[in-house]
Write a protein that binds this DNA or RNA. Structure first.
Length: 687
DNA sequence: GAGCACTGC
């Protein structure tokens, strides 16, 4: 299995000045890698040189597809050009959406600085739970895509905007897809509205076709949409492939690291793997291999990077490596678009990604390792060319590219879409089956989502949004089941507690986890908050402890192995959700010692997710008798449910089907608070 | 008995 022999890395490298390893260089040959020049765009015009052309095209074409790499300045510059050209005159606003909150806030801060505005004045931003914009003064507004979609609930024609730029559209986030459909519709009523859709090269044609096609079949004399290509401040990245497939890409990645380290010039390395387990194994292997490095060779510094780390732990990857040390960042897909690390010169790509897909017939999410798309591979390779010319080593043979999809299937086709259908209906789009989706979700997903919303009484017999329940569920920014119990929580006299639980389940990674001895400490600390009744009440305990006198500190969190940022965010979310309840005149009351009220209330929304314990300690879902296991992160992992019944927030299928966020319930409650879900299903089976 | 890609309203 000789897939990566020492001394056979890609040619074209210069002598490593730090190690002076000339011999290794001489031994390198082209045999093992095929070569391909990926990007070479330095000679093209930068974005400001195309300013006049861009503004001209915006005048001429209502929809402009802007193609350009990260770093070409489109996100910060285009809104400013439009502003200077008068597109924000007469109180109008230039809007720009981002798929991520950090992007929306950081870009707004930078543009505010460039324009000389205070953040929140002429230039502002809006993300959930944070609005730093002025309704009267803000002219350039950055926001998350979901936030603009939500704005359409209040103002369906988005009338204050003269231009809307949908940035990073190629990522195809669900809200970006929905916005594009909505904006295409809005444009029929507001022909003066201008759209700018920013995309990577590979998807540009699809956007163009979408906006140039008319679902009504009306005649058109001129095209609506056009493409403009902008230059990026990218350096060329040389891509190399293995000559044979490997069975263990983690091992292959470690070999690649050593090859680069011994034979190539200084520069940090970024490795793309699929998950935490692989990342930890890779980091350990690299540490072990360091003992075999030649005397005098510079060191390697492996740094794991994934979303499970606290923000403090994530900060390590941004720090420059110490002298005579090469940084090796080992990352999940988080480094593909969400986190950008400077000074990466080499990328090692496993070619795989973990992707979540929703199975409508079981109602379960599945997390599977799949081949990354060509667009993904391209984006990953580009991470090596941000500050200088770079190299990308792909741990598979080049012909394998032919089997990979061009781009990742859009999120809206892989998700539970009940929330989106609810929101579309709240926008007045009643026929969600005929909505002009950029890519329509599979019809079985549409059907199941509608059925589910009906069972929650959000839709009536005609599929219309119920009032006030369905309408309010669409408004509250949490998932439909949680929205339902939040809105009904006063009937169980526990709105105080459900508010907290809703906030706590909306943030991720409340508990810090660790390896070895540190992991044991984390477990012991978690036990201090554990409620016998399950995870929801445990989360409630954590929140109440955190908000107790003198405890809202990072120090307190650290000593109890809790995530300070997550808990702070929970406070903010709870405050926001509280305002919704107040607006709906829902009394905010506490059940006090009567904690069973909380669990009954949970049943009234999560009855679909119920399971019965089996003699062997596993569970069986009541819905379709699927075999389920307790996720090891649950407090129920080390306990048995005394009543034999539980409800859960979600199931994720990896090696097994794992229930996450579990609460013990009584069998009687399942009958009483499930709106006939189980009795009617039982009678259906009897017939 | 032992594990969780990543966003977002």
């Amino acid at each position: 299995m000789a897939f990566w022999k020492p001394g056979t890395v890609a040619p074209g490298s210069t002598i490593d000045r730090e190690t002076g390893n000339e011999d290794a260089l001489a031994a390198s040959s082209a045999n093992q890698y095929a070569h391909l020049s990926l990007t070479s765009q330095r000679q093209r015009l930068p974005v400001y040189k195309q300013r006049t052309k861009l503004l001209h095209l915006v005048e001429r074409y209502p929809v402009l597809i802007v193609v350009g790499q990260t770093g070409c300045g489109k996100t910060t510059q285009i809104p400013q050009y439009l502003f200077e050209a008068g597109w924000a005159a007469q109180g109008r606003v230039i809007g720009c959406t981002q798929p991520r909150r950090v992007a929306a806030t950081s870009v707004a801060a930078r543009v505010a600085q460039e324009v000389g505005s205070l953040l929140g004045d002429e230039v502002g931003y809006t993300i959930r739970f944070e609005d730093l914009s002025s309704p009267t003064r803000t002219r350039i507004k950055y926001m998350t895509d979901g936030m603009l979609f939500r704005e359409a609930m209040l103002d369906p024609l988005l009338s204050k905007y003269s231009v809307i730029m949908i940035d990073e559209a190629h990522e195809r986030s669900s809200y970006t897809d929905l916005l594009l459909g909505l904006l295409k519709k809005v444009r029929k009523k507001r022909p003066e509205l201008r759209l700018i859709v920013s995309s990577a090269t590979i998807d540009a044609q699809a956007f163009l076709n979408y906006f140039n096609s008319n679902i009504d079949g009306a005649d058109r004399t001129q095209d609506d949409a056009a493409i403009i290509s902008l230059e990026g401040r990218m350096y060329p990245v040389e891509v190399a492939y293995l000559d044979e497939p490997v069975t263990d890409y983690v091992r292959a990645a470690v070999k690649a690291v050593l090859d680069i380290h011994l034979k190539m010039p200084a520069g940090d390395i970024l490795i793309f793997l699929t998950g935490r387990e692989e990342i930890d194994r890779c980091a350990e292997d690299i540490t072990e291999q360091m003992y075999d490095l030649p005397a005098g060779a510079s060191k390697l510094l492996p740094l794991p990077l994934h979303a499970g780390l606290t923000s403090e732990q994530q900060l390590f990857v941004f720090e420059p490596a110490p002298a005579k040390t090469r940084k090796v960042v080992i990352s999940t897909n988080i480094a593909e678009a969400s986190i950008t690390i400077d000074n990466i010169r080499y990328v090692i790509d496993s070619g795989f990604v973990k992707l979540r897909t929703f199975n409508p017939s079981t109602g379960m999410d599945r997390l599977t390792v799949t081949g990354a798309s060509l667009a993904s591979l391209n984006q990953r390779a580009g991470r090596a060319g941000r500050t200088s010319a770079g190299k990308c080593f792909r741990l598979f043979p080049e012909p394998a590219l032919a089997k990979l999809p061009k781009s990742t299937p859009p999120e809206i086709c892989r998700s539970d879409i009940s929330l989106f259908l609810l929101q579309l209906k709240a926008l007045g789009i009643d026929n969600v089956l005929r909505f002009d989706y950029l890519t329509p979700p599979p019809s079985v997903m549409l059907a199941r989502a509608l059925e589910f919303l009906y069972s929650l009484k959000a839709l009536d017999d005609y599929g219309r949004l119920t009032r006030p329940l369905g309408m309010r569920m669409a408004e509250v920014p949490v998932d439909p089941m949680m929205a339902k119990i939040l809105l009904d929580s006063d009937e169980f006299s526990c709105s105080q507690e459900i508010l907290t639980i809703a906030a706590m389940t909306s943030v991720q990674n409340v508990f810090v986890t660790g390896e070895g001895g540190e992991g044991a400490i984390c477990e012991i600390e978690k036990r201090k908050f554990t409620a016998e009744e399950g995870d929801h009440l445990t989360l409630l305990n954590v929140y109440n402890a955190f908000t107790g006198p003198g405890k809202q500190s990072a120090k307190w969190c650290h000593s109890h192995r809790l995530n300070f940022r997550a808990l702070s965010r929970a406070i903010s979310i709870r405050g926001q959700l509280r305002k919704y309840l107040q607006r709906f005149d829902i009394p905010i009351i506490s059940c006090g010692e009567e904690e069973s009220q909380i669990r009954k209330c949970l049943v009234s929304g999560y009855f679909k997710n119920a399971a019965k314990m089996q003699p062997d300690g596993t569970y069986q879902s009541l819905r379709d008798r699927a075999s389920l296991s307790v996720h090891p992160s649950s407090v129920m992992f080390t306990r048995v449910a005394p009543t034999g019944y539980v409800i859960f927030h979600e199931v994720i299928e990896t090696t097994k089907s794992f229930m996450r966020d579990i609460t013990v319930v009584d069998q009687d409650w399942l009958k009483e608070y499930s709106g006939g879900y189980y009795t009617s299903r039982a009678s259906q089976r009897a017939k």
